[in-house]
């Protein structure tokens, strides 16, 4: 992708909070590079899965990793186009610690003509050697005619998405 790391990061920081559920969970963009993306999911009471232990549910982790892999896929392309998720698999290594935020790192390891392959891990800061979850996901590259409607201009990502959501 032609954009610099800073431009990419800035763009993702504008676009990802427009995904309402990501905003609800408070997901933050930490870093972006070509085909790579790092997000943070803060701990909060309302994402708890086990009220006895305070451990967060797998659902918000799925959202974290789907978003991380999906936008890493976008960051691997030459233009900013949404790529729908084909499938996603999460392996849970251990429970997340209550009270700690979770970082989700994703990277694209293959871009074929039709499909983008991504993988990622979720972990607590400074505990990357003890991952909470591993994830692999595949994304569909849209055909050029469909892409036109899903393209987000580099310098006006926010406007474009807002405009598109207004049209529907």
């Amino acid at each position: 992708m032609a954009m610099t790391r800073e431009e990419l990061t800035r763009q993702m920081q504008q676009v990802i909070p427009l995904l309402k559920h990501c905003a609800v969970l408070g997901i933050k963009v930490l870093d972006v590079d070509a085909g790579k993306l790092s997000l943070e999911l803060p701990y909060s009471e309302f994402i708890i899965g086990n009220p006895d232990t305070g451990v967060i549910h797998g659902g918000p982790l799925t959202t974290l990793m789907d978003t991380a892999c999906g936008f890493a896929a976008i960051a691997a392309l030459d233009e900013f186009v949404l790529a729908p998720t084909l499938d996603l698999r999460i392996d849970y290594m251990r429970a997340a610690d209550p009270g700690k935020s979770v970082i989700g790192d994703a990277e694209v390891y293959r871009v074929s003509s039709n499909v983008i392959f991504a993988r990622g891990i979720a972990y607590h800061n400074e505990e990357k050697d003890q991952p909470i979850a591993h994830c692999t996901a595949t994304f569909m590259r849209l055909d050029p005619d469909v892409r036109k409607d899903n393209r987000v201009e580099n310098n006006s990502a926010k406007n474009k998405i807002e405009k598109m959501s207004g049209e529907s």
């Binding site: 559920h21 990501c22 659902g59 918000p60 998720t85």
Partner: peptide
């Protein structure tokens, strides 16, 4: 709907 919510 966010794919992650469908998953959750």
């Amino acid at each position: 709907i966010h794919g992650g919510v469908i998953g959750g």
